[in-house]
Amino acid sequence: MDYRMPLYIQLQDIIIKKIEEKKYLPGEAIPSERKMAETYGVNRMTVKSAINKLVEQGYLIRKPGAGTYVAQRDYKKIDLSYIDEITGNSGVTAMLTRSGMETSSKVLGFGEVAHSKYLNYKLALGGDETVYGLHRVRLAGNQPFAIEYTYMPKQDFEDIENFDFSKVSLYDYMDTKGHMPRHFIQNLIICEANEKVAELLGVERGTAVFKIESQGADKDYNLVEYTKSYMNPAFAEFRFLAEEK
Rank of each mutant, 00 (worst) to 15 (best):
R138N: 09
K35L: 11
G27E: 04
E148Q: 12
D79H: 02
M36T: 02
A94D: 06
L119H: 10
G100I: 05
G109W: 07
I147K: 05
L80Y: 13
T87A: 01
V113A: 03
G27C: 09
K63T: 08
Q143N: 04
P64R: 13
E21Q: 10
L96S: 09
G27W: 04
T39N: 03
M45S: 14
T46Q: 08
M101W: 01
L108C: 14
A94E: 13
Q72D: 14
R136W: 06
L80C: 09
E129Y: 04
V113E: 10
Y69W: 07
V113L: 15
P31M: 04
L134H: 02
A114R: 15
R44W: 03
D128Y: 11
L123R: 06
Q143R: 11
T150I: 08
E28Y: 04
E20F: 05
L119R: 09
T46Y: 02
E148I: 01
R136S: 14
N43Q: 06
T150R: 12
G109D: 13
E56C: 01
G109H: 08
A29P: 13
S99M: 12
K117A: 15
I51S: 00
I51E: 01
Y118D: 09
G91F: 03
G58S: 04
V42S: 07
G133W: 00
Y132C: 08
Y132G: 09
P26I: 07
G58L: 07
E129C: 08
R73G: 14
R73L: 15
I30R: 04
Q57T: 10
E148H: 01
I86P: 00
S116C: 10
P144S: 05
F145S: 07
A146E: 14
M95C: 10
K117Q: 08
Y121W: 05
G65E: 10
A124K: 14
